[in-house]
Write a protein that binds this DNA or RNA. Structure first.
Lengths: 230, 230
DNA sequence: TAGATTGTTAATCGATTAACAATC
DNA sequence: TAGATTGTTAATCGATTAACAATC
């Protein structure tokens, strides 16, 4: 299985499985079935097994999965057994939150620098790291071999920051600024858009409030066919 | 078209189109083609037209789309022409960032309360709103008719906060805590997981670094068939 | 062995894309 | 009218799901 391309939808769920396994491990669970892990991760067990089958055969029929072993295998597949130096640009409230966020400093990821264009912030220490000028980006990337950049600047600055990141060799960007970046092929960008998430919730909330207009919609809402309805 | 169920993938992209239209509007653009809007939104034009076709026929053949009109139609479809009172629970660095984030206070959404279990924070004013106790959740929800709750607490508190939100009538939750919530049917949860996003980037970054193993992978990376390659 | 549970198959479902007729 | 561009069709692609043979 190793070397096979893993479907994007599966890749996006691996971190969720990993999180569920971590919490099982913390609570002392040594073995779990696909149903237990799937429930903890909020998916159905068929999907979980299908997803895991893309990584290899790491379970035991009739028994289930060894929590530690599966945890290791998923970590390895994602690449968390390596060290990923990360640079965060834009140290406002969000940047502070990111710097302090355990997920960023935890196993696998290491925040090597916090950069901000505002000289008034330089020298401030956040999460044990001193804030430096944005003009030190190139030196930081070269020194630590940074491949992943996080943008937490205001929207107006984001494209410039991204362009500069790409110019100094960063090829993966996590963008929190509410703007759509335009970047060359080969650069991977993921956008975390707080307002989009709210808007998607609002759309569904709106649908809940208004009464469904047709029998077809009621049936669709129930999620299963209703016998005898014409 | 109105009343038709809109595919989830389309719903998730409507906020992106809206953002692109907003920035066109700001820069004085009054009309755009599907290709222009698609480029600004980072999708291809066929997908954009297909998506918009689920809302209705708001363009003019041979001409394109009226920016303001399309902006209004998408806003209406999402439900942004209504007022959505929102409560944020957990006012640490992330909660601060959210409270100050323009996307949360902008058109459509209105932060009506900031709640925190830590009494030391009570009375602090963030983004013009005074932080109150978590025990005031029920009163706040009842008073303002809150339907959407945002969780920005530490992971350990998130499930309790979510249970309480559901108990007082909230049916849509945006969860920033790094934990998987277990909630009853009918409650809509969206999770924003910073560490998942980093992990997904790491997976792809890893793939970039290691040399592709087969010609098939090289061809797949190029994203198009390569003439003459055997 | 009998019971349990995985890994895989195959069918279904939904999303994407290219192409083009409709039409401004 | 001629040129441009939408909205829709149909084909393709990828993801989900149920069912079950393999096997511990």
């Amino acid at each position: 299985m190793s070397g096979t391309r893993i479907p994007e939808a599966t890749v996006a769920r691996l971190p969720v499985y990993l999180r569920a396994l971590n919490s099982m491990s913390e609570s002392g669970t040594t073995t779990c079935s696909s149903l237990e892990l799937a429930t903890a991760a909020g998916v159905n067990s068929a999907k979980l097994r299908k997803d895991l089958s893309h990584l290899g055969s790491y379970g035991t029929r009739g028994v289930g999965y060894d929590v530690e072993y599966l945890r290791y295998q998923i970590s390895r597949e994602i690449g968390l057994t390596q060290d990923w130096p990360v640079v965060v640009v834009g140290i406002g409230n969000l940047g502070h939150a990111l710097a302090n966020y355990s997920g960023f400093s935890s196993r696998g990821f290491r925040t090597v620098a916090l950069l901000d264009a505002d000289t008034a912030r330089h020298g401030d220490v956040v999460a044990g790291i001193e804030i430096r000028g944005f003009d030190e980006l190139e030196a930081v990337v070269a020194e630590h071999g940074v491949g992943i950049g996080v943008i937490a600047t205001p929207a107006v600055a984001a494209q410039d920051v991204a362009d500069r990141m790409v110019a100094v060799g960063i090829r993966s960007i996590l963008n929190f600024a509410p703007t759509i970046l335009s970047l060359p092929e080969g650069v991977d960008v993921r956008r975390v858009d707080l307002s989009s998430e709210l808007q998607i919730l609002a759309y569904h909330e709106q649908r809940k409030s208004s009464a469904p207009a047709t029998v077809a919609e009621v049936v669709a809402d129930l999620g299963q066919p209703v016998g005898g309805v014409r």
